[in-house]
Design a protein around this nucleic acid. Structure first.
Length: 423
RNA sequence: GGAGGGCUGGCCGAGUGGUCGAUGGCGGCUGACUUGAAAUCAGUUGUGGGGUGACCCACCAGGGGUUCGAAUCCUCUGCCCUCCGCCA
């Protein structure tokens, strides 16, 4: 959520943002509502001040004072009018608030203006895509060949876009997530969290999934609970509604969780294999930080995610999402894309964002400045550290051998119980 | 699922119709004493909104109601806790 003052005082910056994001939002209606809101506020507050004063006077008048009854009658009428104005105010504020919740975040000045993913500049590359003396197979062929992936039974148990991992495949999934959690907790200074995998509507609103993106979420019938699409939701909301001590910042959190996404609107994309699933595992990193240092923290966060791929020896590149391709809540996002030999291209495996105070406003997470004694909104960041399923795919494809076996990257071997290859 | 108890400021906890935004304690901040610290003493200390400003308004889980006036009375909803039942 943006500061409502921005719409009042600098509407042109909001218009520019909407244009750059190719988003539409009724800014004129919002301005009208905001104006009406302040008009009503002034009127009803003056009336309430008058009523409060009158009521105080009633208490001081004697029982038989003739002024008392007329004053009470006058205040009663004022009360009726207050009720009318209050209800109109509530409706205006409600509409204004619901508009505000649908307005995307302002991109940072360093974010390139662009239309879509074709305008995302590459920031850096790491590693060299492996050269194969044979035609590299896609992960589903490798996985099925080794008997570690079962797509048919996944579909039978649930639906399309669900996969069963077996034996060394399941073990590899577990090895990857343990390896990542160890790395972030031991070397990058994150605290490990085991959050709820279901959260309520207020929590979903806090990070921006609601009210706008409910069609992407799985909802639990009969309860105000939703399955999390990412651990960003419970981790970022962990301190919602709190006033933090400045010296608590930065707060670095990491968690392994499954993620659940309906993938509405992606029909026909990546239907083969387990690149795009309704349920996938992910290790997530979240930072709750001082507003003055959030962009330094974004670089650190991105580096922390890159480190996973570096240790595993998987080639990747980092791109900066342009204004037209950025997420709703983000001010700046770096995507990390890993090399997939079978597709001969880089595919997203991590997304690292600085949301500035956009989520903090929705969650009402603040800290008290030691200097001024005033409260300020924190800045929140999130990044995949990294998507486990896609990482497993990348390992299978990049480490495959001509005979269909897969060499386990050396740092993962201890996590695989000493297994050096899957065959 | 059944029965009961609760929800008040950063935290704990008073408050059952009229200066109550709320006694008190803890914590925080400022000052005094001290070489410094601790202890002690004094003062101070909620959040948000509106107005150039003196100032005004709102907030005691949330909604609705009664009243001139509600933290306080009525009502609905949510959540938390305890006991019983069931259960990994």
């Amino acid at each position: 959520m943006l500061d409502p003052k921005l719409i009042r005082e600098n509407p042109d910056s909001v218009r520019e943002m909407l244009e750059n994001r190719h988003a539409s939002w009724p800014i004129d209606e919002a301005q009208t509502l905001d104006g009406r809101r302040r008009e009503l506020l002034n009127e009803v507050e003056a009336l309430k001040a008058m009523r409060n004063e009158g009521s105080r006077k009633v208490a001081t008048l004697k029982k038989d004072d003739p002024e008392k009854n007329s004053l009470m009658e006058e205040m009663r009428k004022a009360g009726v009018r207050v009720k009318e104005l209050d209800s109109e105010l509530a409706s205006v504020e409600g509409r204004f608030e619901s508009l505000l919740l649908q307005l995307p975040n302002m991109p940072h000045s360093s974010v390139p203006v662009g239309i879509d993913e074709n305008d995302n500049p590459e920031i850096r590359r790491w590693g060299t895509p492996p050269a194969f003396s044979f035609e590299p197979r896609p992960h589903w062929e490798i996985g099925e060949g080794l008997g570690i992936m079962d797509f048919d039974r996944g579909t039978r148990l649930a639906q399309a876009r669900f996969t069963v991992l077996k034996g060394a495949g399941a073990r590899l999934e577990r090895a990857l997530l343990n390896f990542m959690l160890d790395l972030h907790t031991r070397e990058h200074g994150y605290e490990e969290i085991e959050p709820p995998f279901m959260v309520n509507s207020a929590t979903m609103r806090g990070t921006g999934q609601l009210p706008k993106f409910s069609e992407e979420l799985y909802r639990c019938e009969g309860d105000d609970l939703w399955l999390i699409p990412t651990a960003e939701v419970p981790l970022t909301n962990l301190r919602a509604g709190e006033i933090l001590k400045e010296e608590e910042l930065p707060i670095n959190l990491t968690a392994y969780t499954p993620c659940f996404r309906r993938e509405a609107g992606s029909y026909g994309r990546d239907v083969r294999g387990m690149l795009r699933q309704h349920q996938f595992d992910k290790v997530e990193m979240v930072k709750i930080v001082h507003p003055d240092s959030s962009y330094e923290e974004l670089e650190k966060l991105t580096n922390n995610a890159e480190r996973v791929l570096q240790i595993l020896g998987l080639p990747y590149r980092v791109i900066c999402l342009c204004t037209g391709d950025m997420g709703f809540a983000s001010s700046k996002t770096y995507d990390i894309e890993v090399w997939l030999p079978s597709q001969f291209k880089y595919r997203e495996i991590s997304s690292c964002s600085n949301c500035e105070d956009f989520q903090a406003r929705r969650m009402n997470t603040r800290f008290r400045s030691r200097e001024t004694g005033k409260t300020r909104f924190v800045h929140t960041l999130n990044g995949s550290g990294i998507a486990i399923g896609r990482c497993l795919i990348a390992v299978l494809e990049n480490c495959q051998r001509e005979d269909g076996s897969v060499k386990i990257p050396e740092p993962l071997v201890p996590y695989m119980g000493g297994i050096e290859e899957i065959r």
